[in-house]
Each structure stands twice: as C-alpha cells, then as structure tokens.
C-alpha cells in the first residue's frame, strides 16, 4: 500500500506529460523548420562576419538551452532534496544527457566560429573556461548517478553536485562583463535591448523556442522512462522477497 501511494504522484506526471508530448513534438518540428529556413535563406549576412554569422543560429540557442537545462536541474534537485518530491530527481536525471549534448554542441559550433573569426579554435578566457566547466558538471552529474547502487543515495549525491555547480551559471552569464574576455558580451539579453538586427534576432528566437520545445518533448519521454525503471526495480525487489 505504501508503494501505491508513492506512485500516485508519478502517475499524474505520466498522464499530464503524455497529453503534452504531441504538442511539444509538433511545436519543435515546426519552429525548428521555420527557424532553419529563416536563418539559412532569409536572414542577411552580417556586415562584419559575412555568412559565418549563421553559426549563431545553432550556437546561441544551444548555449541558452544548456544554461536553462542546468538551472532547471538545480531547481529540481533542490525540490528533491527538500520536499522529497518523487519525480524531481528523475526529471533532473532525465535532463542531464540532453543538457550535456547541447553544451557539447555549443562548444563545437563556437569553436567552428572562432577559428575563422577570432583566428583560434579555443582560448582559455573566462567565458570559454566556465563553459567547459559546465560540460564537466553535466558529465560528473551523470557519473554520480551511475556510481551508487542505491538510487536513493545516487540521487542525493547527484542533487548536491547539481546545486554546488549552480554557482557556475551566473559566472558563465556575467563572465563577459566581469572580466576581459575574447568572447563578445551579450547581444540579446542585455539591459538596453538587443544589439542584433531584427532580421537576425527573429530566426534566432524561433530556433531557441524550437530547441526549448525539443527539450520538452525529449525530457517527457526520458522522465517517463525513469519512472518505469523505478517501477521495474520495485517489482524485481518484491519478486526477490516473495
């Protein structure tokens, strides 16, 4: 009976998220298609960077996603630690590989932009270094989940790492303002409005929304998988005891 109560909340998550899933899939497909079309065919080249500027249409949305996903994981981890919400840890666990993927995409596309524009694939400035640390945090978080046999303890350890690593998020965001970096300062999320022409800003925002919907769809599937995995575990333990 105790286990039944435990599943009540995840069951509601599964029901609600399943209803949401087709919308997320549809939105991400439409938005990414439109964003790619506008970004590759309609948006003009930049007056300085020429056509290489189009890299920002994948680089910046990936970067936003990796920061957004990490922040979400930190909040979910705090919720899991404090209120023992049964889905929070699983949501964070399900998000980590997606965030790590976006972080890698950010680093790779940024490197491919840096080589022709800056004249180097990589520099150890505050922005790039803190971003690499974000990638390692994701990897460390995923490794911690695997390091423990007991999912309860694994979840706790991973949640603490996620919270400790959260200090890196504002460091990434403000690194370009606090220190001299090679990386340029923020163009879109700045106090006095975006310093980017609307013909480039619109495809950028559409891509970012598409990536967000993509994350939504993928994280629903992955969290449901984690919920089933936990059910499988309880059933197996019941079998052993029986």
């Amino acid at each position: 009976m105790v286990s039944l109560h435990k599943f009540a909340n995840p069951a509601r998550f599964v029901r609600m998220s399943s209803a949401l899933l087709p919308w997320m899939v549809g939105m991400s497909a439409v938005l990414i298609t439109v964003g790619l079309y506008l970004g590759l065919f309609v948006a003009p080249p930049d007056y300085q960077q020429g056509e290489s500027m189009r890299i920002i249409f994948v680089h910046v949305p990936s970067a936003w996603m990796s920061m957004f996903i990490y922040s979400g994981m930190a909040i979910a981890s705090a919720t899991g630690l404090i209120w023992k919400h049964p889905v929070a840890d699983l949501l964070a666990k399900a998000s980590a590989p997606v965030g790590a993927g976006f972080t890698f995409a950010t680093l790779a596309s940024g490197s491919l932009w840096g080589q022709p524009m800056w004249g180097t694939w990589w520099v150890w400035d505050a922005r790039l270094t803190s971003y690499l640390i974000l990638f390692f945090l994701y990897i460390g978080y995923m490794a911690l989940w695997e390091a423990f046999d007991d999912p309860q303890r694994a979840g706790k350890a991973a949640a603490i790492l996620a919270l400790v690593g959260a200090v890196n998020v504002p460091i990434i965001k403000f690194s370009v303002d606090w220190w001299n970096t090679l990386h340029q300062p923020a163009s879109v999320m700045k106090m006095d409005g975006p310093a980017i022409d609307s013909s480039m800003l619109v495809p950028l925002l559409i891509m970012a929304l598409g990536f967000t919907a993509f994350y939504g769809a993928v994280v629903i599937v992955r969290t449901q998988r984690e919920i089933m995995a936990r059910k499988v575990r309880t059933l197996r333990m019941a079998q052993v005891q029986a």
């Binding site: 080249p45 020429g50 056509e51 290489s52 189009r54 890299i55 994948v58 680089h59 990936s62 590989p97 997606v98 993927g101 976006f102 890698f104 995409a105 790779a108 596309s109 491919l112 932009w113 080589q115 022709p116 993509f214 993928v218 599937v221 992955r222 449901q224 998988r225 089933m228």
Partner: peptide
C-alpha cells in the same frame, strides 16, 4: 556560404547529429 562552408555546415551538422542521437536514445530507452 561565402567561403565559410567548412565552418557553417559542420556547426549545423554537429548540432543536428547530437539532437537526433538524443531522440533515438530517448525513444529506445523508453
């Protein structure tokens, strides 16, 4: 791409490959 093909297309390609891999992994695991 105005001479930047070797940088623009791999950026889009890597991002797409990662996203497709995430979809496949998520669905298979499910």
């Amino acid at each position: 791409m105005g001479g930047y093909a070797a940088f623009v297309w791999p950026s889009f390609g890597i991002t797409a490959a990662i996203m497709i891999a995430i979809v496949i992994d998520s669905w298979r695991g499910f």
